[in-house]
């Protein structure tokens, strides 16, 4: 089972997608239109790239810290949480599901993705 299919079976998951680090491709499943999924892919990729740049700068100033290289990030609103790990994003209704569970699942499947791909 692919990580996208696996994520979609979890409680509260609205949609999940995957983007190429180069920015030229994306795929998704769930309750989003093609255009909105494309926009989500672009925003998630941009934030991931920014987080990696910040992590590298942070590490050059404070070497040996536990934040670099970043594995992912979360943005939590009143109802929805955007969960991103490596090049996979997941839109979760966190009133219906657990962020900790989704992060655990994503880390289990994506925690070893090589950082050099970015």
């Amino acid at each position: 089972m692919s990580i996208l299919t696996d994520l979609l079976t979890q409680p509260g998951v609205v949609a999940a997608g995957e983007y190429a680090y180069r920015g030229d491709r994306f795929s998704y499943r769930g309750a989003l239109s093609e255009e909105h999924a494309r926009m989500a892919s672009i925003m998630c990729r941009a934030t991931t790239m920014g987080a990696n740049m910040e992590g590298a700068m942070f590490n050059s100033i404070h070497p040996g810290n536990g934040l670099h290289p970043p594995r992912g990030w979360l943005v939590r609103g009143p109802v929805h949480t955007v969960c991103v790990m490596a090049n996979v994003f997941c839109l979760l209704d966190h009133t219906q599901g657990s962020v900790s569970h989704i992060v655990g699942l994503m880390r289990q499947n994506l925690g070893d993705v090589p950082h050099e791909l970015i």
Binding site: H36, G55, L67, P70, R71, V75, R76, G77, M85
Partner: peptide, 21 residues
């Protein structure tokens, strides 16, 4: 505004998941 979806704003928390922290 673009998707007419709700529940994302205002942002309550931002989390950076690093390698160990």
């Amino acid at each position: 505004q673009v998707t007419a979806m709700s529940g994302f704003y205002p942002v309550q928390e931002f989390t950076l998941i690093g390698f160990d922290w």
